[in-house]
Measured scan of single mutants.
Amino acid sequence: HNLTITQGKLFFHYNPKLCLSEIHKMEEVSGTKGRQERNDIALKTNGDQASCENELLKFSYIRTSFDKILLRWEPYWPPDFRDLLGFMLFYKEAPYQNVTEFDGQDACGSNSWTVVDIDPPLRSNDPKSQNHPGWLMRGLKPWTQYAIFVKTLVTFSDERRTYGAKSDIIYVQTDATNPSVPLDPISVSNSSSQIILKWKPPSDPNGNITHYLVFWERQAEDSELFELDYCLKGLKLPSRTWSPPFESEDSQKHNQSEYEDSAGECCSCPKTDSQILKELEESSFRKTFEDYLHNVVFVPRKTSSGTGAEDPRPSRKRRSLGDVGNVTVAVPTVAAFPNTSSTSVPTSPEEHRPFEKVVNKESLVISGLRHFTGYRIELQACNQDTPEERCSVAAYVSARTMPEAKADDIVGPVTHEIFENNVVHLMWQEPKEPNGLIVLYEVSYRRYGDEELHLCVSRKHFALERGCRLRGLSPGNYSVRIRATSLAGNGSWTEPTYFYVTDYLDVPSNIA
């Protein structure tokens, strides 16, 4: 807008934040220059609390790290170098490059900038070799853009010569660093050979998330399962459950009422301010606690030095998902009996873990797994792929695949051998790939016309006998059925096997 004052003059007093240069501009645009008398524009009460600059400061050096910015700028000295009290560095987070010096300023003089007072450097006698002032900004957020400017702080001049310097606002972004852990990993099994893994992005990506790394490792069953005799009275049979499938998407929606109208769909109840505040506090606490764990609990591995020492970490090797089922080394339970199943799973520490690289999504279907087997899954978020990966501390989750139908069934015939004193040795093959492992066998036998009897055969007993022995049988026709019990439950009964026990007292003698 054009402003013209045809008559009258300007009068400025007691404006401590208004620089004289701005008042002189007002004289020019209003056409009143030359009308004012000496005392109409006070030299001592206008701009006496402001830094009124008329020179431009330029930054000469900028260096960044993930949490620091090192700045240096060209030296500046007023005509009387004693008038320079120091520099004021202003900075704040700036997602967009549209910041002005006066953003967030209120009537009390406060604003949204963080201000650092910096002492002037030592003055050199040689004007050509003056030290460049600077400042190291610490405690910054990774991968965050900051708006920065600097200006001088000078003393009051009796001659009211307006001098000083100020830089333009520059924008500097800190470097990326390792992201925080992925949030809320959930693993479920939808079949006997697959596990579905879902997660949420890290709360602090500290860069642009480029991919996720998912490692999985087959877990050995508890050692007590191999040692305890679950045929003993009072000892509860062990059981394991597989990871249940995901709930429906509708039930997972946030901010939804727990109660549904019987007449149909209901609208979600909005969260109160107290609920939102509580969630923010919980989120802040979780982030602080995660940072504490990362800094205190997890110790970084030592990389190899120039002395030739090897990095103890196993090298990563990509495998196809079809090879995942046989990740671990199978060892027989008892070496003397080769027909026992290889369900003991000690994992070799030198073995390469299978892994998958996930790009542009937060889910993965891990296939080719062994049925009813526990897996430990390790999830890392990465925001750099080359020249070397920059990934987060791992988040861990466990899951067990679903049982395989008929995996616990005894394959092959049940054979028998009759000894003296009416002892019958029953023999059968253990299931080759049971659900988890076989903890015991149930032997059901009966003599024709009598009630059915049951015998429990422990895992250890089966390994020693290759089956079991029935003792003290009365003469007669017998039928026997056997079924295995694994961590997933009972298998199917075998087809009945028949044998006849004679009275050993009636056996004919070869003595003449």
Rank of each mutant, 00 (worst) to 15 (best):
V397Q: 02
L487T: 07
F246D: 07
E227W: 09
F289H: 13
D261M: 13
S223Q: 10
Y500R: 06
S315E: 10
S239Y: 13
Q219W: 11
S474L: 09
P475N: 08
T340I: 12
G207T: 05
E430R: 06
Y292H: 04
T340P: 12
A263H: 07
I410P: 03
V214D: 00
Q252S: 14
Q429M: 15
S315Q: 10
F215W: 01
E495H: 15
A381Y: 03
L437M: 09
C456E: 03
R218Q: 10
F499D: 00
Y445H: 08
H454I: 14
R313T: 10
W242A: 04
S392L: 02
N383W: 07
T494S: 14
S486L: 01
F289N: 09
I418G: 04
F226N: 11
A395W: 07
R390W: 08
R218S: 12
G449K: 07
P431C: 08
R446S: 02
S444A: 03
T386Y: 02
A335K: 10
K278L: 08
P475V: 08
G489A: 14
Q429L: 09
E430M: 13
C266R: 09
S283Q: 08
Y259M: 05
E404A: 04
P475D: 04
G412R: 11
S458K: 14
L379A: 05
I377C: 06
K460D: 05
S248F: 14
D385R: 11
D250W: 10
A395K: 15
K271E: 06
S284E: 02
Y498A: 13
T340L: 08
S315W: 12
E351T: 13
G325W: 13
T333F: 15
S363Y: 07
L505W: 06
F355V: 12
R218M: 15
S262Q: 10
Q256H: 10
F226H: 13
S509Q: 13
Y478T: 01
Y441T: 02
N339W: 11
I209A: 08
C266Q: 10
R319L: 07
L426S: 02
S274K: 07
D323E: 11
Q275K: 08
A395N: 05
W216R: 06
L379V: 06
S479Y: 02
T386E: 10
V414N: 01
F226A: 07
C231R: 02
C266T: 09
L321M: 11
G322N: 04
R318G: 03
V334R: 12
R318K: 13
N360E: 14
N421C: 02
K361L: 10
G306R: 12
V329A: 07
I410H: 05
G264S: 05
C391M: 03
P508V: 11
H454V: 06
E227D: 14
I209R: 13
S458Q: 06
T497C: 15
S262R: 14
I410G: 02
T241R: 11
F337G: 14
Y478N: 00
G322I: 13
Q219T: 10
G472E: 09
S509M: 08
Y396A: 08
R471H: 09
E351I: 15
E452F: 13
H425L: 11
P244M: 12
E389T: 12
H454W: 04
T333N: 06
R240F: 14
L455Y: 10
E282Q: 15
K236I: 03
D506E: 06
F246E: 12
E451M: 15
K302A: 04
P346L: 13
A309Q: 10
E290W: 05
F372S: 06
S348R: 11
T415G: 04
G467M: 03
S243A: 12
P245N: 12
R447V: 05
K302P: 12
G264H: 11
E430H: 12
T494P: 01
D506Y: 14
H371I: 09
W242E: 09
P434G: 03
T415Q: 13
L213M: 12
S257P: 13
E224L: 05
L369H: 01
A336L: 11
V414F: 02
T303Q: 06
C468T: 03
L228S: 12
G449D: 11
A309Y: 07
N435T: 00
I418T: 12
G234F: 15
H425Y: 13
K278S: 14
I209M: 13
H461L: 11
D385C: 14
C391H: 03
L440A: 09
E495L: 04
D506W: 10
T415V: 12
P332C: 04
I366H: 01
A309V: 14
S251R: 10
S257Y: 11
E221L: 12
N490Y: 15
